[in-house]
């Protein structure tokens, strides 16, 4: 599978399969193509050549409601979070359920928030329960990142895509958030996470895929790797 954006070839002949129950870390220098690869999987970046299969289905062959049902099973923590900001936290978190909500229910929820108990429970897991009704743009960077994580928690997807999901969090929260995102993988789903911290990748994932300039240069079980092996991906002397 290949992705070209503008004149640049960002992903070049990537061939990758993630099995059920697997937790896979994506490693690679900044600009290597990790975010783009995650975008291809969740459908925000169309591949220029090749094909993608997600949860056993071909998204390119699906339309309308069927495509929405497939996408509802894929949850993403985006690198730039992609929260609207001008909404209360409860709505931003509830947005995780838009894949299963009809439009009318989504609209009504903006007036009278639906399923607040679930939202509060998800927020409690990331330590934000007391901010449910605050405006999202009044939160700190790390707090917003936790809102994005809570959105994925209420979505209850089978496949979790996480792009630097803990980049703004303290060590304790980092552990907790990665544990939460790995939840679906433990129940037969999967986790694909771009992680810059090699130690974190080795601790939380079963397998590490290394990208460099858009190509897969490393694919090995975490147990067979050391932090020093991963450091090589970043061009630092091991």
């Amino acid at each position: 599978m290949t992705v070209r954006l503008g004149t640049a070839t960002v992903l070049d002949g990537v061939d990758l399969t993630v099995g059920a129950g697997e937790r896979v870390a994506l490693a690679g220098a900044s600009g290597a193509g990790k975010s783009t690869l995650l975008g291809v999987v969740n459908g925000t970046v169309p591949p220029s050549a090749g094909s993608v299969r997600v949860l056993g289905a071909d998204p390119a062959a699906l339309r309308g409601a069927a495509l929405r049902r497939l996408r509802a099973r894929v949850g993403t923590v985006h690198q730039h979070l992609e929260l609207a900001g001008a909404l209360r936290v409860v709505h931003e978190v509830n947005a995780g359920r838009l894949g299963s909500w009809p439009a009318l229910r989504a609209a009504w929820s903006l007036v009278r928030p639906q399923g607040v108990a679930d939202v509060v429970a998800a927020l409690a897991q990331v330590g934000l329960a007391d901010r449910v009704f605050d405006r999202t743009d009044a939160l700190s960077g790390g707090q917003r990142q936790r809102v994005a994580v809570a959105r994925v928690l209420v979505q209850q997807p089978d496949l979790v895509l996480a792009d630097e999901p803990a980049s703004a969090l303290d060590p304790v929260l980092t552990e907790r958030v990665l544990g939460l995102l790995a939840g679906p993988a433990g129940r037969g789903g999967a986790l694909l996470a771009a992680l810059h911290d090699p130690a974190l990748a080795l601790r939380h994932c079963d397998r590490v895929v290394g990208l460099a300039a858009g190509r897969v240069v490393l694919d090995a079980p975490a147990a067979a790797l050391t932090v020093a092996d991963l450091a090589g991906l970043y061009g630092t002397p091991a």
């Binding site: 929405r68 947005a95 995780g96 989504a106 903006l110």
Partner: peptide, 16 residues
């Protein structure tokens, strides 16, 4: 785009 990726109805994506 992020809401579209999690399967939101286009109207809901617009609203949120």
């Amino acid at each position: 785009a992020a809401l579209g990726a999690l399967g939101a109805h286009p109207v809901a994506g617009w609203l949120y």
